[in-house]
Design a protein around this nucleic acid. Structure first.
Lengths: 182, 182
DNA sequence: AATTAGCTTCATTTTGAATTGAAATCCTTG
DNA sequence: CAAGGATTTCAATTCAAAATGAAGCTAATT
């Protein structure tokens, strides 16, 4: 008994698994399994679970889906899905088709993991690594104001940090390549 | 005016930066900077920020520190620090000395990034990757119950996932080695 | 150019993860 | 081996991040 409200956003309870928009039940179960898998992965690396869920639904789907369907299947609001889709698009992990002669846009997952991993590295990790560089510099400028007995050790620690930072930066593209394959 | 309460846990407001336990101010600033850096990194990869902060304080410190000092410096409860230290110990990122003839244990950071990265991979990533394997299997067993027109595409998607999974698994030690260096 | 459906935005609300803190437990040493 | 301090535990609380949803905007369609 999917209650179709008149409000602009569906409040959407639990994704009523039995007969949602007339889709075979096992299909929904499969979809949800894939969703959970990507949801867990997203969470593991500090991304909102919902991004993973959305990508999962698209990854499982045989054809491109409109926003509304995604919201229905996951039982989340359109606002949420809109935000998630935008982020995933920025990551380069999904594609948006604004088909001419159709009001609604359709979304599909780019299936290559390389894109998903790459997007994460580019959008989240790289900026953070850059920030780390700045932080190390700031801390270095603090060294002279430290009491003499601290200075030597602190300098050593910063050097270690700095070395690791350079290394991490230079190795990222490599990691991307490694994890892209499969 | 550090108010020393009698309660078993210090409520500890903001870490009163000026004169905490008679330590030079710049030292605290340095320590906090390192703490922030590791805190941000922890957060980035889905770990509680406080773990990073704790590791940071130890990484910055010239000498091993007792739990109470860490709690004071960060302005967090002993309970928090206790939990954080335990997790970091499990990660293999810090060391606990139960010196004989001393009531309180002392903690120090293991400075090699390899250990921190390795701990994260071993304790958080590996279990998750294993779980992914199980999930893929479960989903595979679902294939026969899918309607015929879905079956082929779903199978392809699962195969892709499965290939990526194997690859990720076999590549982890390699990544650990790469990021360990610096 | 007006209408309307589709989508985005963002102030508010919700939710779940992190933190607290006091009780329970474990260690030390007198 | 008792007492007291150090540490851990975990139910209750706090708080930040995520989700909601209604208002506002944009882009189709007529």
């Amino acid at each position: 008994m999917t209650v179709k409200t008149l409000s602009p956003n569906l409040p959407a309870q639990a994704p009523d698994s039995s007969q949602l928009a007339g889709v075979h039940e096992a299909v929904l179960e499969f979809e949800q399994g894939i969703g959970a898998l990507f949801g867990d992965l997203a969470e593991l690396f500090g991304n909102p679970r919902s991004y993973g869920l959305i990508y999962g639904v698209l990854f499982a789907s045989r054809e491109p889906l409109p926003m509304e369907t995604i919201a229905e299947r996951l039982g989340v609001s359109m606002g949420s899905v809109s935000m998630g889709l935008r982020r995933l698009e920025e990551f380069g992990a999904i594609e948006r088709e604004r088909g001419a002669g159709r009001g609604t846009a359709l979304f599909s997952a780019k299936l290559e993991m390389r894109l998903l991993v790459g997007g994460f590295l580019r959008e989240r990790v790289l900026p953070r690594i850059a920030a780390t560089g700045t932080q190390v510099e700031t801390l270095t400028s603090l060294l002279p104001s430290l009491p003499p007995e601290e200075r030597k050790v602190s300098k050593q620690r910063l050097e270690r940090l700095s070395r690791w930072h350079s290394r991490a930066k230079s190795i990222l593209p490599f990691i991307e390549k490694l994890l892209g394959g499969g």
